[in-house]
Design a protein around this nucleic acid. Structure first.
Length: 680
DNA sequence: ACTTAGCTAAACAGGG
DNA sequence: CCCCTGTTTAGCTAAG
């Protein structure tokens, strides 16, 4: 009894790490604290600084403020540049979790909770590519922006000083006002970054924190209507030109040359995919038209859904599309307000992108830390395809939208808008909800053939401390089936686990116990006495027995899968299915390109939980299915165990290199090590 | 509400 | 005695 309670606590710990269960709660609390302090701390400094210095001369005051602001700005830059290392990981979960992802999500949704999960979804290469882009962009932007700001501030300062004395109080007041505005802008910017940091950084605290600091800002920042002023007229006092300059500074394409002190690592290819949008106006127009023209063709409109207007902050009910259109034209016409809102939205998107970039960066760091092998870098080299911002974190969006201050003009990065299903996590779905311990049952069973997922991401699992979305049983089976003779000693199974998954390099007592437990518990695992000792084999029949019922029948599920998957997912699934058999052979784990996948021949599909396998007959259109019959797969006999299992293996046939009977168990170890998977 | 599957913890036994 | 391997029981959670 006592023990039990103890175990309880213990258990909770690990699960906590997984972080799934506690997504929002935990995230908010912990990370929030950490980041929050920093963030708000800095933010306040600036603010208070300004307030408290009332006694100084105006010029001094300004100077002081300026210095402070700049300092803060620098800090941010630094943080941005180096802060990736921060271990925090919650925030991503949070954002992800909260989201109500659109379509694509259906498939991948669950995954995104943890950063790890997110990573899973996005696939390392994608993340990396994205990350690189974003990171470069971000740095550039920041650099430029801050530089401009500095220039501007100096200019103002100068102006003020020159005119200072003779100037009447009024004038000075105006200038100060203008300056304040600028400062404000800067603060906003900072806030934004803070937000970012918070989000990415770790935990979240998002809600609280995010809103916290922002709220401290003058409402103007948040108020859409005021936004235009900020970017349009903020320079009022004096230099219209400067405004534009400033804006451009943010522009990605902006001359990189400007990058000075921070010499942003020019990594990545240039700012590629982003187009420059000089000002808000054009942008607005563009985005608007775009959205209306491309997505909605039939009777729908991207801004219209569930009978209401989805314009940010507007939830006006509209009975039909026509009415909505009317509403759109009247309420959201091209005016300052709409423009401002649009800009805010742009920022939201950008923030998301930045966040994604950060998460990616973190992933990269994690992988690096885990000795990602050199081969990994591949992704980097081809940062080309601008992975469409897979910004499906709606939660973030929401909060951001609400509170986002303005201050920057960014390219719309249209990419982010259309949430494109990055990768069919057909597999990943499992762990999605899988909170802590892996309640991945569903995925395991239906949608993700373990081998396929592994094939695609084994590199990832190998290096990232992410719990694989499969049950122990399926993993064990996979381990066994992967070997030529389809049998493994317990110790070999352990080795496989640790070799294949970074996750299983920790908490060994726990998972080993689980492995043993599973071996004993499930009939599908047959222990065979061997000369050398005992080995474990898989009784496919038994194994299949236990899972069939699941999704076979559920048409809805299948449907969902299909629809949710979209072609991309489908591809993946299909690929996965194909890949299954040839797991070891797969090489490009992280990437999914159908093309290559198709090249693989479906040897057999052993897989696991394969969704469809059990009931091929169900007429439903199951995407991935391969010909059912052949799943005889390679399980061929092992040397002596002629146990029950072999009934069904038809024949060695297909590609399985069958070592067949001859393999001395002893060697297994060796063999096992090298086989394909390692080689990849 | 109930059942099932899966995970974790732990006790226990046998063998080396 | 310790460790490893297996087996078994129990509690808990998520999902159906």
């Amino acid at each position: 009894m006592m023990v039990e309670s103890a175990s309880e606590t213990i258990r909770s710990a690990p699960s906590g790490q997984n972080g799934v269960g506690s997504l929002s709660g935990q995230a908010d609390g912990s990370s929030g604290g950490a980041t929050g302090t920093t963030a708000s701390g800095t933010g306040r400094e600036v603010t208070t600084g300004a307030d408290s210095n009332g006694e100084m001369s105006p010029a001094e005051l300004l100077h002081f403020q300026q210095q402070q602001a700049l300092q803060v700005a620098r800090q941010f830059l630094l943080q941005q540049a180096s802060g990736l290392s921060s271990p925090g990981n919650n925030d991503s979960k949070q954002s992800a979790s909260a989201v109500q992802v659109p379509v694509s999500v259906a498939m991948m949704s669950p995954q995104m909770l943890t950063p790890q999960q997110m990573q899973q979804i996005l696939s390392p290469p994608q993340l990396q590519a994205l990350l690189q882009q974003q990171q470069a962009l971000m740095l550039q932007q920041l650099q430029e922006y801050y530089k401009k700001q500095q220039e501007q501030l100096h200019l103002q300062l100068l102006t003020q000083q020159q005119a200072g004395k003779p100037q009447p109080k009024e004038a000075l007041g105006n200038k100060q006002l203008a300056f304040q505005q600028q400062l404000l802008q800067m603060q906003q910017l900072q806030q934004q970054h803070l937000l970012n940091l918070q989000r990415q950084g770790l935990v979240s605290l998002q809600p609280n924190q995010a809103s916290g600091p922002l709220q401290t800002l003058p409402q103007a920042a948040v108020c859409p209507t005021d936004l235009p002023q900020l970017w349009k007229g903020e320079g009022a006092p004096g230099q219209p030109a400067e405004d534009s300059v400033k804006q451009e500074g943010l522009d990605l394409t902006g001359t990189a040359a400007t990058a000075t002190s921070f010499a942003a690592p020019p990594k990545v290819s240039p700012p590629l995919s982003h187009h420059t949008l000089p000002n808000g106006q054009p942008t607005v127009l563009t985005s608007r038209r775009d959205s209306s023209s491309h997505e909605e063709s039939p009777g729908s409109h991207p801004l219209y859904g569930h009978g209401e207007c989805k314009w940010p902050g507007c939830e006006t009910l509209c009975e039909d599309l026509g009415q909505f259109i009317k509403h759109l034209n009247t309420e959201h016409a091209l005016d300052d307000r709409s423009t401002a809102q649009c800009r805010v939205q742009m920022q939201v998107v950008q923030q998301l992108e930045i966040q994604l970039a950060k998460e990616s960066e973190r992933l990269q760091a994690m992988m690096a830390h885990l000795h990602m092998r050199p081969s990994e870098p591949k992704p980097f080299s081809q940062p080309l395809n601008p992975v469409p911002g897979s910004s499906s974190f709606s939660k973030v969006t929401v909060s951001a939208a609400d509170s986002f201050p303005d201050g920057l003009v960014h390219p719309p990065t249209s990419a982010a808008a259309p949430v494109t299903p990055l990768r069919p996590p057909g597999l990943g779905s499992a762990s999605l909800h899988g909170g802590g311990p892996a309640r991945r049952r569903s995925s395991d069973k239906f949608c993700s053939p373990i081998s396929s997922e592994l094939a695609q991401n084994h590199e990832f699992y190998k290096n990232a401390d992410v719990r694989p979305p499969f049950t122990y049983a399926s993993l064990i089976r996979q381990a066994i089936l992967e070997t030529p003779d389809r049998q493994l000693t317990l110790n070999e199974i352990y080795n496989w686990f640790t070799r294949m998954f970074a996750y299983f390099r920790r908490n060994t007592a726990t998972w080993k116990n689980a492995v043993r437990h599973n071996l004993s518990l499930h009939k599908c695992f047959v222990r065979v006495e061997n000369v050398k000792g005992a080995v474990w084999t898989v009784d496919e029949r038994e194994y299949q027995k236990r899972r069939p019922p699941k999704m076979t029948g559920s048409p809805t599920l299948v449907k969902n899968m299909i629809s949710g998957l979209s072609y991309g997912a489908l591809n993946a699934s299909y690929q996965a299915a194909l890949a299954e058999s040839s797991f070891p052979l797969l090489n490009s784990p992280g990437m999914l390109n159908p093309g290559s996948a198709s090249s693989l021949l479906p040897l057999s599909h052993d897989d696991v939980g394969a969704p469809v396998e059990p009931l091929p007959s169900n007429g439903s259109s199951s995407p991935p299915r391969l010909s059912p019959p052949q799943y005889s797969h390679q399980v061929q006999v092992k040397e002596e165990p002629a146990e029950a299992e072999e009934d069904r293996q038809p024949g060695p046939s297909l590609g399985a290199p069958n070592p067949s009977a001859s393999g001395p168990p002893e060697d297994r170890d060796l063999e096992e090590e090298l086989p394909g998977e390692e080689l990849s």
